[in-house]
């Protein structure tokens, strides 16, 4: 009788431990895979994929909600890398979510800028500096060329130029 109680107790403890561990480890593993996927994305934070940034897209891919071929800035090489990591089929880039193009850089025409500060809000990497009624400028090293600053600009003073090869 005692043996049965002890063994049942031990089994119960072990079961509880396993249950706890399984829950813990599963979330950790998912987070890890999301991190790995995020590592492979180009970090332009452009939201062309339909998610608000690279990490949300990575989370959606891991959760199986999004296919791996929506990242236009990453292009085929990113799709290849994702396909290799996740063992999913490498589909061609879904061009409904944008075309792959060479790296760009936003440039503010400072003669036209009226200092409305609307672009500051939307820049996902805080690459525009300025203040209301003061001229804005783009930090070239930080700009990812995501184009998100274009629509809010009321005077259309932001241009995208090709990124110089060595910057």
């Amino acid at each position: 009788m005692l043996a049965v109680v002890v063994l049942a107790g031990l089994a119960g403890l072990a079961g509880a431990g396993l249950l706890f561990a399984a829950g813990r480890l599963r979330t950790d593993a998912t987070a890890q895979v999301v991190n790995q996927v995020d590592e492979l994305l180009p970090q332009s934070q452009c939201a062309q994929c339909g998610y608000p940034g690279c990490r949300p897209y990575a989370a959606a891919i891991v959760a199986g909600e999004a296919p791996i071929n929506r990242c236009a800035p990453g292009g085929d090489s990113t799709i290849q890398a994702l396909s290799h990591l996740l063992q999913r089929e490498a589909l061609p880039l879904d061009t409904r979510f944008g075309e792959h193009q060479p790296a760009q850089l936003a440039l503010i025409d400072e003669a036209l800028c009226i200092g409305c500060a609307r672009c500051l809000e939307v820049c996902p990497v805080d690459a525009i500096i300025g203040a209301p009624r003061f001229m804005h400028t783009v930090l070239q090293d930080a700009c990812t060329g995501c184009e998100l600053c274009l629509p809010p600009c009321p005077v259309d003073c932001i241009d995208l130029v090709p990124r110089p090869p060595d910057s």
């Binding site: 995020d38 180009p42 970090q43 332009s44 934070q45 940034g53 690279c54 990490r55 996902p124 990497v125 805080d126 690459a127 090293d141 930080a142 990812t144």
Partner: peptide
Amino acid sequence: AAEARERS
């Protein structure tokens, strides 16, 4: 990319 991730 690392810097953009941090900034974002």
